[in-house]
């Protein structure tokens, strides 16, 4: 990692850790909790949808699986310190990953379009199950969790800090993937899967691995969410809008980038809460959301960060090209040298 990158990451997380101690209002911390949840899920989705180019529309199912696992584990239990559910989180991540494993093996036999179809159908199936397997999920009446015995003044803080830690894990995983052979393999899958397989990339392995890790993280967020809400209903725990929000955030910030999903989550979740607040529970909210969605897809299909990066690169190149006083011949000679550069720049 470059020194600037370390500084950026360290600074970002120090700021995140310090934020709740500034005495922010409850609604601000509450908003931050949701921003973090979506930032983690978007980063997780990015592993599959961004790097490997497999647009999963079923991640909300794993969010729901995590939420229900947490609810089933602690339904009716008495908490002493209130940190027990957080300790159980890795287990919930494992549950998500284990359920995701066969789904990935079956659905990743297909390419982007059909993969999206399979995952979205899986989402609706889990939703149906959540409604219908009453003995386990309580059906449409939902399930309750014990209320955390945290002091009211700083009730959100433990959730917030746990989520910050999870975001760090998600971003480190992303960073690790970007720097390792796994990340390269995923990008190769995205670019041309058949060629990648042809030259010996272990295509199936990395795809399934990325999917399992991704849905495991998503399930963990679902677990935290369930504990935070203390009451879960099937229509909110398994909600197609969660999938869509996560996908949209990743697209807005920039797919296959480290910071893109986080940036997208900050912008969209804040915007979404404002929209929901302004337009209330009315259905105009859905229209506004869909329009924002369409505008982003049409105007910024590559996302903010890649677009900005290209702008900066183009400007830099223009500056370099304009710097020498002698235009014309000199510049074309330069261009020739640049084109040869990979062979023998030194």
């Amino acid at each position: 990692m470059s020194r600037a990158g370390v500084a950026r990451g360290g600074g970002f997380f120090l700021l995140l850790l310090a934020l709740p101690f500034f005495g922010l209002a409850h609604w601000v911390v509450n908003l931050l909790v949701f921003v973090l949840m979506f930032a983690i899920m978007a980063s997780a989705w990015n592993l599959v949808g961004g790097f490997a180019g497999y647009p999963s529309l079923g991640h909300a199912a794993f969010f729901g699986i995590g939420a229900y696992s947490m609810a089933l584990m602690f339904h009716g239990a008495a908490l002493s310190s209130g940190y027990e559910p957080f300790v159980a989180l890795p287990l919930i991540g494992l549950v998500g990953a284990v359920i995701g494993w066969p789904i990935a093996i079956i659905s990743m036999r297909t390419r982007a379009d059909v993969f999206a179809i399979v995952t979205i159908t899986f989402l609706f199936m889990i939703q149906t199950l959540a409604f219908n397997v009453r003995s386990l999920t309580g059906g449409s009446q939902g399930l309750s969790l014990p209320v955390a015995p945290f002091p009211a003044a700083s009730y959100e803080r433990p959730f917030y800090l746990v989520l910050v830690a999870m975001l760090a894990v998600a971003m480190l995983l992303t960073f690790g993937a970007m720097r390792s052979k796994i990340g390269l393999s995923l990008v190769a899958v995205r670019a041309d899967e058949d060629k990648a397989r042809g030259i010996g990339v272990r295509v199936s392995g990395v795809k399934v691995l990325a999917f399992s890790v991704s849905v495991g993280l998503t399930a963990m967020v679902g677990g935290v969410w369930a504990y935070y809400e203390t009451f879960i209903y099937p229509q909110f725990a398994v909600d197609p809008l969660i999938t869509i929000a996560v996908v949209l955030m990743t697209f807005l910030g920039g797919r296959a980038t480290l910071w893109g999903p986080v940036l997208g989550a900050v912008i969209l979740e804040a915007g979404q809460q404002t929209l929901a607040y302004r337009l209330g529970g009315s259905q105009f909210y859905l229209i506004a959301y869909a329009l924002v969605f369409l505008v982003i897809m049409l105007l910024l299909p590559r996302g903010i960060l890649p677009t900005l990066e290209e702008r900066i690169r183009l400007r830099r190149r223009a500056r370099v090209a304009n710097a020498p006083d002698t235009p014309g011949a000199a510049r074309t000679a330069d261009a020739g040298r640049v084109a040869l550069a990979p062979g023998g720049r030194s």
Partner: peptide
């Protein structure tokens, strides 16, 4: 990839219009 998401957005848009 994009068309999947765009048609999903169209579905949401229609849903919103119908709800209103």
């Amino acid at each position: 990839e994009l068309s999947l998401l765009v048609t999903f957005a169209v579905a949401l848009l229609l849903e919103g219009i119908m709800s209103v």
